[in-house]
Each structure stands twice: as C-alpha cells, then as structure tokens.
Amino acid sequence: MKEHKTSPLVWPLRALGLGALIGVWAFGNGPGGISPLVLPTIPRVLEALGEALSQFSTYEAAAITFGEILAAFIIASVFGLAAGFWAARTPLRLQVFQSIFVWGYLAPLILFYPIFILSFGTGVGSKIGYGAVSAFFPIAYNSLRAFATVQPTMLKVAKAFGASSFQTDFLIKLPSALPLISSGVRIGAGASMITVIFAEMLASTAGLGYQLALNSQTFAAPQAFAMIILLMALVGVLQGLVNLLLTPRRDRGKIINVAH
C-alpha cells in the first residue's frame, strides 16, 4: 500500500459527516416529526447513557458479554488451528476438509441459534458454544490454507539442512503460515463478536445484548440507544485488542487488509 500524505481535509470531512448525522437526527426529532418514542432526542439518549454508566449492573453486563466473546474466540482458535493443522497433513485430507470448512464458512450459522438454545439453554454456555462454532470455520479454513501453501523451496531448504519433521513443522511451516492464520483469526474474532451479541439479543438473561433487546422490546428507546453506543464501544475495545495481538510490531499503525 502506498503511503499518501494525509489531506488536511480529513478531519473537517469527518466532522462534517458527524455533523450531518446529528443534523439528520435532530431534524427527525424536530421538523421531521418523528415521535420521540421511536427516535429519542439526543439529550435523552445522553442522559440514559450517563444513567447506564453510573450503574454497576451495566459493567457486570459488559463483563459477561466480554467474557463470552473471549471464551468463544479462544476455544475456536485452539480447535480451528488444530483442525487446520491436522487437515493439511495429507493431500487427501486437505481436499476433503478444505471443502467442508468452506461449507461451514458459507453456511449462515447465525440462523442456527435456536438449536444452541435448545441444547445448552439460555445461559452463558450456549453463547460461548455458538460463538465458538461460528468462529471455528474461518479459523480452520485459513489455517488449513496456511499450512498447505508453505513454499516448496522452504521445505526443500529444511530437507537439505536435515531438519526433522518436528523442526520442519515448528521452524518452517508455522512461521510461514502465520500471516494467513492471523487473517483467519481476525475473521474468527469478528464472527464470535457477531454471533455472541446476536445470541444475547435473541434469547438470554444477561449481557449488554440482552439489555439492548430488553430495552427495545419494552420501547425504552433512549436506553436502547445508550446500549447501542456501549456495545459499539465494547466492540471497539475488542477490535483494538485483536489488532494489538495480531499486528506484528513493525506493521503497527498501518491498515492491514480488509478482506472479510
């Protein structure tokens, strides 16, 4: 990616975008005639946000959501990496499981939540299980591709210098597979966020997603909007953590590929 000088217009343009959003919102409330029951006014939302931030239960809910996403992500990463590594070991397995992982990737797993509720109940377990399953496939698929596409010349070098198969795995295959693995893990992190939060919204008893659904179903619009803002903040923190974890130190500050 080429480095371009940042235009001096960038921040004014961003301010303009934010201004436009607020303007449309305010217009909707005022001259637009949208009922505040449906679209709460900005001061009411800020008030509700302040209220939420002053309550301990909000932090508890955020911690639950955060923990669920983290657990789902870790489980999916461990199993996904192991599955990708195992499946890339022989050409036949590679061909068989590559397709199966792609199918899992393509399947709209977000629809399968009712099954998880039935099997694991509405508690924390079903969110973790569900999040882990949906993050598993992208991680497994990308790891498989990563281990399968190690450059033949590198393997030749390993052979020529008498590396054992264990050494080949850890000194050659793993490092050269890392970039692709990390993009898989990144997609997996996104998938676990999407599924866990949606699962909380659908059927749950705790977490920020549950609070959002509850407020929205009881038509507490300002509170619902406040929850949306909190969830965006939580997602921002999680994304920041994932970036910190996956971006090699030398590449920090640059935008890494955006493929999803």
Partner: peptide
Amino acid sequence: WQAYSAPLLFLMSTPKSIFLPI
C-alpha cells in the same frame, strides 16, 4: 477515502445486529 474509510471499516467489523432495534 482517508476521511471515511476508518469509520466504515469499524462499521464493517461491528456486529450490525446491534443496530436492529433502531
């Protein structure tokens, strides 16, 4: 692109379902 790519990329990797209530 410089001005709006970052907010858009954030939106892209945010679970869109949180906006469903709106």
